[in-house]
Amino acid sequence: MRNTKLILIEGIPGSGKSTLAQSVTHALTRSGIACRWWYEEEKDHPLYVFHDHASLQQTIDTLTAGGYHQIIEAVLLKWKEFSQQLQSSETIVILDGCLFGYLTWSLFPLNVPADEIQSYLSQVEQILHPLHPCLIYLYQQDVARALEKICERRGGETQSRFIAGATQSSYGKQRQLQGFDGMVTYWKDFRHLIETAFSQFDASKMALENSAGSWTTYEQSVITFLRLPPQEKAAVASSEFEHFVGTYSFEEDGGQHACLILLEEDHLIVDGMPQVWTRTRLIPRSHNIFAVESLPFQITFEEDAHGVIIGMSATGSALLFGTADHFFTRVQEKR
């Protein structure tokens, strides 16, 4: 294992940051190395200057009112506290989207000068130097296709929100960016900014082009980069997955809702689970335990004395705006 206390995983939205962070966390754990993955939307995140919707809105208001220097100073203080605490810890921390994401992509849409953003990143680099950080940058050559895929993946109003966020920002308005093409231009420009920062970042680092979606290969490349032993997948035959397929009910907001476990090709997907994107893949960890892809959640299927699946429990880290913790009762099919 490399001599590091911190693994930073970066890239634009949809580049696979949380997917890789989850994989790295699992690899470290299986290797007997104490670690902690802080998912970018996790509650009580050690680097965030907000902790709930009200404080988040206050931060946004300060930024949009031109008070970004104040926010930069507050965030740099958080980085300093984080670095000092981690230096005396035996735990390796994995962060996704905190260096080039978080404040960096909050400053960019406000049209903050690039040199000021680079100055902020340089200060963070110096703060993190004692941790010997490892930086992994994920990217796709075709930005338009990458954005299309993430909008399809997350569903709902993701595309319209992404377009509005880019084109209605100060950066987008000044450049008269419009529609999907304007959003693509916005993220291309942002990528240029962070790739400049990546090239200047003084740390162990690797850039990984992952357009092909060959995650087994990418994960192995990262394992090699981190100098971890080769990892084996959980030995759960896909033929066993049919056992878990079905409709599960849960209670939320005073009503009953349905959640589906479906078999798609050689893997399970979950659809309709709180705090989870539509049609999200489940990753087997053991016979009846699955990780929810890209999220800090785990599903455990429960059986009765006869081996019949009667329900499942979802557990995991609390997020800023909710939790995945629920018990789901399997709906028995009528005969």
Rank of each mutant, 00 (worst) to 15 (best):
M1G: 07
L6N: 06
G14W: 01
T25R: 06
H26R: 13
A27W: 08
I33N: 09
H45L: 03
P46V: 02
V49W: 04
L63M: 13
G67C: 14
A74C: 13
K78F: 11
F82K: 06
S83R: 07
Q84W: 10
Q85V: 05
E90Q: 08
E90K: 04
I94Q: 05
W105H: 12
S106P: 07
P109L: 07
L110N: 08
P113G: 06
L121C: 13
E125R: 03
L128S: 09
H129K: 14
C134I: 14
Q140E: 15
A146N: 14
S160A: 15
I163G: 05
A166Y: 03
Y186L: 03
Y186P: 06
Y186E: 04
D189S: 13
F190Q: 03
F201P: 05
S204A: 15
L208C: 09
S211E: 10
T216S: 12
T217C: 10
Y218I: 13
E219D: 09
T224S: 14
T224Q: 14
L226V: 04
V236R: 15
S239E: 10
F241N: 02
V245F: 00
G254K: 02
A258L: 09
C259Q: 00
L260G: 01
P274G: 07
Q275Y: 05
V276L: 00
V292P: 00
P296S: 07
I299L: 09
V308R: 12
S313D: 08
L319F: 09
G322R: 01
Q332Y: 04
R335Y: 06
